[in-house]
Amino acid sequence: MASRTLQFFLLELSNSLKRNILMLVASVTTVTILVFLLGLFLLFFMNFQRIRSAIASELEIHAYLKQQTTDDQALTLKHHLASLTHIRSVRYVTRDEALSELRKDTKGEIDLSGIINNPLPAYLSIQVDNPESIPAVASAIQSMKEVEQVNYFQKIIDQFVSLFKTAERLFLGLVILMLLCTLMIIHNTIRLCVFSRKKEIEIMQLVGATSSFVRWPFILEGAFYGLLGATLALIFLAPCYHALVSEMSIIFPILPLAKGHELFPLMLWLLVIGTSVGCSGSYLSVNRYLHC
């Protein structure tokens, strides 16, 4: 695009914004409200996934080793397991360490001083990348010759996986629904703006403007509506979310809620969504009135 033409388009954009101030206000308000709501949904969804991952990372498989397994064999097994897919970390706990952990966990509530020969087996504590892979990994470990028994709290994990899967699907469905609503409403608002100027489009074509020459100022205008609306939405969303996170952190300090720079990608996405919906809305709407 020649710089002269670009300069003309930018001038057209500036003049059009001044001329159609009511349309500007209507479009930007619509985009702001919808991107704000979409942002809230996405923030909830994002934090939900963080909480799910945090809980999932605490879930462990304990592979109890046979009595005759030596430390060397246990460490070899540990390294082997660590190289397998879905396994995030493997920790070797010797028999002595297992007894120490038991003492620590019971905090003296149970008298363990009478134990002379440590009855506890050594074990490997294994963390996986996601809870869904626990049963398959446990089954694979169970078949290894050094392993006596595998324990992973099957019932609790199954319930956890089921609950989070359902919640995640529900949330994802809501986010997609919200995204579609946002796209449709913004698109319709911009369509109304373009409709009000269809005579202008007709005149431009009658004096020899090509379709792209007519289209570009409208696309730039749509992008501007989208970008401005999304920026305003973020300006409102940021303090609301910050206040909410501050309250939640006091009530549930262990919740791993997203803060600070962790929010930048989401904010960037909201800006991209707002701008691209504005562009595409304008593009599709103008095309309806272009005859050649």
Binding site: A2, T5, F8, K199, E202, I203, V207, G208, A209, F213
Partner: peptide, 20 residues
């Protein structure tokens, strides 16, 4: 068939703007 909200100059100039 004039472009409303624009000046006389802008309306006449539009026919030249389209050809750059």
């Amino acid at each position: 068939k004039l472009l409303h909200g624009r000046t006389v100059f802008q309306n006449v100039a539009y026919a030249l703007e389209v050809v750059g």
